[in-house]
Amino acid sequence: MHLPASPTIHGIPNCDTMKKARAWLEARGVAHAFHDYRRDGLPPGLLEGWVARLGWEVLLNRAGTTFRKLPETAREGLDEARAIELMRAHPALIKRPVLVAGDRLLVGFKPETYAAAFG
């Protein structure tokens, strides 16, 4: 299944992985919108919809500096509601990029995954 011509890529502009994903799309002439969720926030229901489809564990970036800087009490005993609350309060906790194209939802960037999706 091919993705629609104009997907939206969600993330923050200074993230290296975001830069790689956007460069990959641009090099292949894939028009896309960019949503800076740190600057512009997350519309109500968007994050919750992603979590419902993929699970909060897929979306929560536990490897990043933002997560490591959280107090230990915030990092312990996470569940879906608490993870969503943290990701809303600290958008950098959301793995990047999140690419939405039609009914497809891709998290992270791997050239082979994008190649398969845009084949």
Rank of each mutant, 00 (worst) to 15 (best):
S6I: 14
Y37D: 03
A27D: 15
T8V: 13
G102C: 12
V30G: 03
R28V: 09
V58Y: 01
E26I: 04
A92I: 01
M87S: 02
G49N: 09
I94Y: 04
G55T: 03
L99E: 07
D40W: 01
T66S: 13
H90G: 06
E76K: 15
A63R: 14
E80W: 03
G102N: 13
H90L: 08
E48V: 01
A21P: 07
E57V: 03
G11W: 01
R75E: 11
K20M: 11
T65D: 09
A52E: 14
L99Q: 07
G64W: 08
P44M: 10
D16F: 02
V30K: 04
T73C: 08
A33V: 04
W56E: 06
I94A: 06
P97E: 10
L86E: 11
H32W: 04
V51K: 03
A33L: 10
D79A: 08
K95L: 03
A74N: 04
P97C: 08
T8F: 01
L25E: 10
A81M: 00
M87K: 00
L46Q: 13
G49Q: 05
L54S: 11
Y37K: 06
L99N: 07
G11E: 11
V58Q: 11
R75V: 08
A33D: 14
K20G: 09
R82N: 01
L60W: 09
R22K: 14
R39E: 06
L46E: 13
E26V: 09
E80D: 02
L60G: 12
R53M: 01
H10G: 00
R28H: 15
A33K: 08
K19T: 12
D36S: 04
H35I: 00
A81Q: 13
P43R: 15
K19Y: 07
E80K: 04
G45A: 01
P44C: 11
W50I: 01
